[in-house]
Amino acid sequence: MGMNIVVCVKSTPSSVNVPVDAATGQPKTAGTPTAINPYDEFAVEEAVRLKERIPGSTATVLTLGPDGAADVLREAIARGCDGGVHVSGPEFDGGDSYSTSLALCAALKKLHAEKPLSLVLFGKNTNDGCSGVVGAETAAWLDWPEVSSVKKIEAVDESSVTVHRAMEDGTDVLKLSLPACLATVKEINEPRLPSLKGKMAAKKAVFPKWAAADLGLTAAQVGASGAAAKIVKAAGQPPRPAGLTVAGASAAEKAKKLVDILFERKLI
């Protein structure tokens, strides 16, 4: 029996090298080209691989973002997803991980009511917000089991999934009952490029667009109004003090000088 898989992705700036607007103290992203968050590519690939592995399965891509974010839904379809859902509306602007995960939870519940879901996949984090907690928060709202840092999906059956989790000191193997949420890391796979067939499908794809009201949420619960934390200001990294170059006639002389400095500064 097939499984219904959802992969959550975000449209983010393709370059994270963005200036800060001096007036607002916020990153200047207007006009910056956007793309699918690079970490989400691994989650999309894994969703498609699972779909291919288990006959009768579906892979649906879900995003929350402005109108332009529909592009990342197309990108995921070009890479093999079957369909997409776009959660969008001005009420979602300025959300944090708390209000964003609540909205994702509501969208997933709606999908789950239409056809029962087995797995929801996330990327490790986004390249702009960088919090890496939306998967865990969404799972907590859903009250579904969640594992982060998943580097391998070993076995899947109708009621459970066994995964490998990359820890700082090794690998944990865990078995989750379904439905479950998984946040993936890069090690899990090598994403494929979009196929020609996929690109054709992406072009023709039409996505349902859900506002807060469609999810049974009020505008006060989502976006900036529903947020529990706010980025009041962004700044560039403080400049590092000027460095020195170790000079010397020979490599041996440079090595001696370098080790002298490291000992003097009590670094070794």
């Binding site: 960088c130 980025i231 009041v232 962004a234």
Partner: peptide, 11 residues
């Protein structure tokens, strides 16, 4: 923030 290119002040 922005992959470490920026530092965000969070309230």
């Amino acid at each position: 923030y922005f992959s470490g290119n920026l530092i965000a002040s969070v309230e």
